[in-house]
Design a binder for these strands. Structure first.
Length: 936
DNA sequence: CCTGTCACG
DNA sequence: GACGTACGTGACAGGG
């Protein structure tokens, strides 16, 4: 190989900085500082910047580096977890106020104009090892700035370590002093001694001292293990023989990988001076007064103004933003213009993104254009697949409209930006855009989502759609979709919209999204829901996207056969009903049915609602069934009609022709409590309670060679109630694995468990549910169909027996009245403004306030499980398909069922930890089968 | 578009 | 003392 003239080589000196080490030192060295303007935690960033500054200042003289790089860990799964799933398993979770600071330390590094590297699937140590090896081979010098002893194996041949805090250099001798062996044998000692911090097992009972002794005696680990029988000390001998596999595994875990696949070379790491404007801009943004001033002086630049006045709510927040003007947006038609936008995005570090498509079903529609915004008022639209006008009348041409970039070329330019880990993509309902772009080969990350931010802030106060948010927070009504596409029969798709109108509409969406983000994002910290957003909302979106795109297989023939059978039965029932009524009428019309029942037939109990129509709900018809045959027939007809229209017919329409599967959409912000909702189709209300309905689940099947597995939390809400209301007897019943409804019945009605009857248990079960819903005598009476006084007696006895529950309810309502919101155990806020109302509305709000922390905590727990699930089952050929509030449905290769159940159950049962330790165990039941009916 | 009804947790 | 009441959802049909 020939020497390039400016390449890294002899005379060069590479500094490799362990970024994570810097961050943790900075975090622990400083008090929990917050940024003055918005309260964001900033202590670790401050310490990190000071350390970088001190480091840069010290880089003078003959020891100064020619090349430098800060290396970070990329969170998540590494190849070591594939070797040993417990690797680093007893690491404590990252402190919640540190997590949001990590991306800022990356930005800080870049602001100092120092190369900043990380790699998915590898630890920082491996990247450092690879770079150190490359530099050593090239004949250069290397200094690793870290105090991590794992890196000592790299020392030697021009590689040294530097503990920046103690300012101690560690060379060959230093390593020997620490490990008792030279760097080349450090891994052998570590393999034997293990490491409790990283959870490397090693050989039990052997520490560094003994390990070094053994290695020095036998030369290396392999020789030692091959000759283990010859060791004199019986205990040591036995340990080495018994644990050989574990020791060999440990060596693989501690051995750093010098061949990580890097997409850059040493030459990319050359030392560069910081750009004063960029660095000072960043420091000012962080509101570091002292450091900004000092560096401005050193660089001979003007210190930027720091505005750290705490932002006031409402109008003052964004005082001088340009008005939203759709005429100012730019249409991007060529690569040069797009390149200019990309450069602006890279400068900014973030961009609002919106995609325009031919419809709403992300699994079917085509991408039509992409909108970007970098600053308020600075937005563009990139049309990519608009159809040319022309053709006759409604028939549009198949040709593309002129003035558009080729779709492939535009995506090729945008992909690196959309996937760049250092550029934040901002969207409104980003899951939608991410799914679309995923189908075009682009994995959008990282991202923020204004819809999710709004939900974390204001669940219960208002909805979180863009139009509503824009009107509320920006005082601006965006161009209505209707205006652009029309509605009803004459509605057109976006690809038929003229380019100028599409630009106004699309770019406006991106502009509005960016402005919303600027208004809402800072509020997360102020409202103390940043953790909710960052741990329960944002990371769930990609998990849901994955589930939705995978879908579940649904068998059309099964549904079709059932539809036919239902139709036949309904026709028979309809004839009977008309016969009984003495005339034909529309059985499906509650209005006509009410008139038949109560006017023509004069049955008792006719009550008119507010619209003047008779009520004909199931409860009323059930009461009437004792009087006449007709109501019972109508109930049967309604049951079949429901199953047919909502399930056996409608589900067939939702089978995707390409995949043969049904792809639901989960709405993360639909339910105020933190629950998900599911649409198109709703997979969370597939029948299960009636035998006939349950058969619909037989149509939800596993693919060839696979099995459906269902895992569901047992009684999760009652367990949470026992915890939050601190009911010892309930907690104990759960610890003992008792039937909780029977136990409740026993407590409340004084019936010994061995004399329990199904009827008494049923009543206790109704009370238990009632409690969760904010019980009332009226409600329980109606549910159990017993006199109200009797129901009230049950409730009184229940509260007498469990006084803690009444206290919980009273305290929760009082909290709600004081704050106008209630909270889950994980800090999710559910606003309950109506609790201050007078009249019946307050009653609703009170019951909702009692229920919300319980239902919401359960929702948070399964969210945590879902977020952790992809990593937990990464080694198992399985996919998570569905969530039904307390149930997760998976599809797994035959043979791997038990492995999946073990892994998924573990995640679900421990999902509250470590944030919350419940006083009751969470229990997960599992089932499996060829279809959902069998698995559930 | 609203209401009633009914499917689920 | 009367009022109206179980909590959280989504889909469909009928009818204005």
């Amino acid at each position: 190989m020939s020497e390039t003239k400016s390449g890294f080589g002899k005379g060069c000196h590479l500094h490799l900085i362990d970024g994570s080490g810097f961050i943790f030192r900075a975090y622990h060295a400083l008090p929990p500082l917050t940024r003055k303007s918005d309260g964001a935690p900033i202590g670790a960033v401050s310490g990190f910047c000071n350390m970088l500054h001190r480091y840069v200042e010290g880089n003078t003289g003959p020891d100064a580096p020619t090349h430098v790089c800060v290396v970070f860990d990329k969170s998540g799964h590494t190849f070591r977890n594939d070797l040993y799933d417990l690797y680093k398993a007893n690491r404590e979770a990252m402190p919640e106020d540190l997590r949001p600071q990590i991306p800022l330390t990356r930005r800080a590094t870049e602001a100092f104009n120092i190369a900043c590297k990380e790699l998915q699937g590898y630890e920082a140590d491996d990247i450092i090892a690879t770079l150190a090896c490359q530099a050593r081979e090239a004949g250069g010098r290397v200094t690793i700035i870290s105090s991590d002893k794992d890196l000592m194996q790299l020392v030697g041949g021009g590689v040294e370590m530097l503990d920046a805090m103690k300012n101690v250099r560690i060379d060959h001798e230093g390593v020997e002093a620490k490990f008792g062996v030279g760097p080349e044998r450090v891994v052998d000692v570590q393999a034997l001694a293990g490491d409790s911090v990283d959870n490397v097992p090693g050989a039990p009972g052997i520490g560094i001292k003994t390990a070094a002794l053994l290695i020095n005696e036998w030369g290396d680990l392999e020789t030692l293990l091959d000759n283990a029988e010859k060791i004199k000390q019986p205990k040591r001998r036995q340990t080495l023989i018994d644990n050989r596999a574990q020791i060999e595994l440990s060596k693989k875990l501690v051995q750093l990988d010098c061949n990580t696949p890097l997409d850059f070379t040493l030459d990319d790491l050359e030392v560069r001076d910081p750009e004063p404007e960029v660095l000072l801009g960043f420091l000012a943004e962080m509101e570091f007064r002292t450091l900004t001033k000092r560096l401005a002086e050193q660089m001979g630049a003007a210190a930027p103004e720091i505005d750290d006045t705490p932002s006031q709510p409402a109008a003052q927040e964004a005082p001088e933003q340009p008005a939203i003007d759709t005429a100012s947006y730019q249409m991007v038609s060529d690569a040069e213009t797009l390149q200019a936008w990309i450069e602006r995005i890279r400068e900014r570090g973030y961009v609002a993104v919106d995609t325009e498509t031919t419809g709403l079903d992300e699994m079917v529609v085509d991408l039509v254009g992409i909108c970007l915004a970098t600053d308020p008022g600075q937005a563009c639209y990139i049309p990519l697949a608009h159809k040319a006008e022309g053709g006759e009348g409604l028939f549009a041409s198949d040709d593309l409209a002129p003035g558009q970039m080729p779709l492939d070329a535009a995506l090729k330019m945008l992909k690196p930006v959309l996937e760049d880990g250092s550029i934040l993509k901002i969207g409104q309902n980003m899951k939608y855009d991410a799914k679309i772009l995923k189908r075009y080969g682009i994995d959008v990350a990282p991202f923020d989502d204004t819809m999710l931010i709004s939900y974390a802030l204001n669940a219960g106060l208002h909805t979180h759609g863009m139009d509503a948010l824009s009107e509320r927070y920006l005082g601006h009504v965006p161009i209505p979709t209707k205006e652009l596409l029309g509605s009803g029969k004459s509605q057109i798709t976006f690809d038929l919209v003229p380019l100028d109108k599409a630009t106004a509409y699309g770019a406006e969406d991106a502009d509005v999204t960016l402005r919303l983000w600027q208004v809402l994002k800072p509020r997360l910290h102020r409202e103390k829901v940043a953790t909710v957003y960052e741990t329960l909302e944002r990371p769930l979106a990609p998990v849901l996207a994955e589930m939705e795109m995978h879908g579940i297989k649904v068998d059309r023939d099964t549904l079709s056969r059932m539809s036919n059978a239902f139709a036949q039965k309904m026709a028979g029932l309809e004839a009977e009903i008309h016969e009984l009524a003495g005339e034909t009428f529309n059985v499906g019309s509650p209005k006509q049915l009410g008139e038949i029942l109560f006017d023509k037939m004069s049955l008792p109990g006719g009550k008119k609602g507010k619209t003047g129509a008779y009520a004909t709900g199931a409860d009323i018809l059930e009461d009437l069934a004792t009087e006449h045959e007709l109501p019972g027939r109508v109930l049967d007809w309604r049951a079949l009609s429901k199953l047919k229209s909502t399930y056996t017919d409608a589900l067939q329409e939702h089978i995707n022709p390409d995949t043969g599967r049904v792809h639901t959409s989960y709405l993360q912000t639909g339910a105020n409590t933190g629950r998900l909702s599911s649409t198109d189709p709703n997979v969370q209300n597939i029948p299960v309670r009636s035998e006939e309905g349950r058969r619909i689940r037989e149509a939800f099947i596993a693919d060839q060679g696979k099995t459906l597995v269902s895992l569901d939390y047992s009684q999760i809400e009652l367990r949470i109630l026992a915890h939050v209301a601190r009911i010892d007897s309930l907690k104990q019943a759960f610890h003992e694995g008792q039937d909780i409804h029977a136990a409740t019945a026993s407590e409340v009605f004084g019936v010994p468990l061995d004399q329990m009857t199904p009827e008494i248990r049923r009543q206790a079960k109704a009370i238990n549910f009632g409690v969760i819903y904010g019980i009332s005598g009226f409600g329980l009476a109606r549910n159990l169909r017993i006199p109200r006084a009797e129901a009230q007696g049950f409730i009184d006895r229940y509260f007498e027996r469990f006084p803690g529950i009444r206290e919980y309810m009273d305290q929760t309502v009082a909290f709600g009245q004081e704050h106008l919101f209630v909270q889950t155990l994980f800090g999710r806020k559910i606003h309950t403004p109506e609790i201050a109302a007078k009249g019946p509305r307050a009653g609703f709000a009170k019951r909702a306030a009692i229920n919300a922390p319980i239902q919401g905590t359960a929702a948070d727990i399964i969210r945590r499980a879902m977020i952790r699930m992809p990593e937990a089952i990464a080694g198992i050929p399985a996919k998570m398909l569905l969530q039904v509030h307390d149930e997760l449905v998976f599809e797994v290769d035959k043979g791997a069922e038990e492995a999946l159940i073990k892994a998924a159950r573990d995640v679900m049962e421990n999902a509250a930890e470590p944030a919350i330790h419940l006083d009751v165990p969470l229990v997960v039941d599992a089932g499996q089968g060829a279809n959902w009916a069998e698995a559930h």
